[in-house]
């Protein structure tokens, strides 16, 4: 399913945070959103999801404007994984994942056995079935993040929006989550995610959109957009982009110049 924005501007009240973004992602693709803290990534996501009023432009799903869609209609197509934060009530993890089924339930219904199965499948896919009966407020931040991802999967969306899904995760789980997201996209899911690790875009993204203070800095393939110049413009540091040779899979890494300098000094 194709998600597209045309000249989308977003913000709070009269204040514009993100201006004039045009982009699209097709089913089976991963679009990676890069930008410094406060550059408007979350605002952009919330506007696509209809949580914030857009200021200008259009959000299109398969060419149709989503304006005026009910939250349920939108939620059946677009899933959202927000950044984990504390819940007020100590829900069981399974109950949190079950809430992903909201948009599929009839007016007065509560989740059925079938919904429970779907929630359990989603948890199994992320290897977090062991959390099922634990209390959401008492598990670690990284585990909470995975639970929220499972909740979005239980929603069975066609488009998945993830706000910094790996920020709170440990080293192993960053890879686990990204691998799962990538395999979902291979099965046809449309994925947009934001991240603080430019390298992730080399590994997992088909396309990259860079934000600088709410303005689009570049949109294109990872090797076109994730450049020394753009990284300096976004994060204010100089990096060296190193390609590993083909034997190691032709991967690319971003290493800050200052670190490279240190290493060279130590070696010499």
């Amino acid at each position: 399913m194709r998600l597209e924005t045309k000249g989308l501007s977003c913000g709070y009240g009269r204040k514009t945070v993100v201006e004039d973004i045009s982009m699209f992602v097709e089913g089976g693709e991963v679009l990676c959103l890069l930008g410094a803290n406060g550059s408007g990534k979350t605002t952009f996501f919330k506007t696509i999801l209809g949580l914030l009023e857009k200021q200008a432009g259009q959000v299109l799903v398969d060419g149709r404007d989503v304006e005026g869609w009910s939250p349920a209609r939108r939620a059946r197509l677009i899933g959202y994984v927000p950044q984990a934060r504390g819940a007020v009530f100590p829900f069981r993890v399974l109950d949190v994942v079950l809430m992903g089924r909201t948009s599929h339930l009839a007016l007065f219904a509560s989740p059925s056995e079938e919904d429970v199965e779907k929630a359990e499948e989603a948890m199994a896919m992320l290897d977090i079935s062991y959390l099922k009966d634990q209390v959401y407020t008492r598990i670690s931040g990284g585990e909470q993040q995975l639970v929220l991802l499972a909740r979005a999967l239980a929603q069975e969306p066609r488009i998945l929006i993830l706000d910094e899904p790996t920020t709170n995760l440990d080293f192993g789980r960053q890879f686990l989550v990204m691998e799962r997201v990538k395999s979902l996209s291979r099965r046809g899911l449309t994925v947009i995610l934001s991240t603080h690790f430019p390298e992730q875009s080399f590994f997992y993204a088909n396309r990259v959109l860079c934000f600088r203070q709410g303005r689009p800095l570049g949109l294109g393939s990872p090797s076109e957009v994730v450049t020394r110049e753009n990284i300096r413009a976004m994060y204010g540091i100089d990096v060296r982009i190193i390609s590993l040779d083909a034997r190691q899979g032709g991967l690319k890494l971003c290493i800050p110049d200052s670190l490279v300098g240190c290493v060279q000094k130590r070696v010499s």
Binding site: P71, T102, S103, L105
Partner: peptide
């Protein structure tokens, strides 16, 4: 009583509840 399960979703806050498909 009829909508009691949705109170769970409401208690997640407006944004998350809307993103999950609830007419908050």
């Amino acid at each position: 009583f009829l909508i009691r399960w949705r109170l769970n979703v409401l208690s997640l806050g407006d944004e998350e509840a809307t993103a999950l498909g609830l007419n908050v």
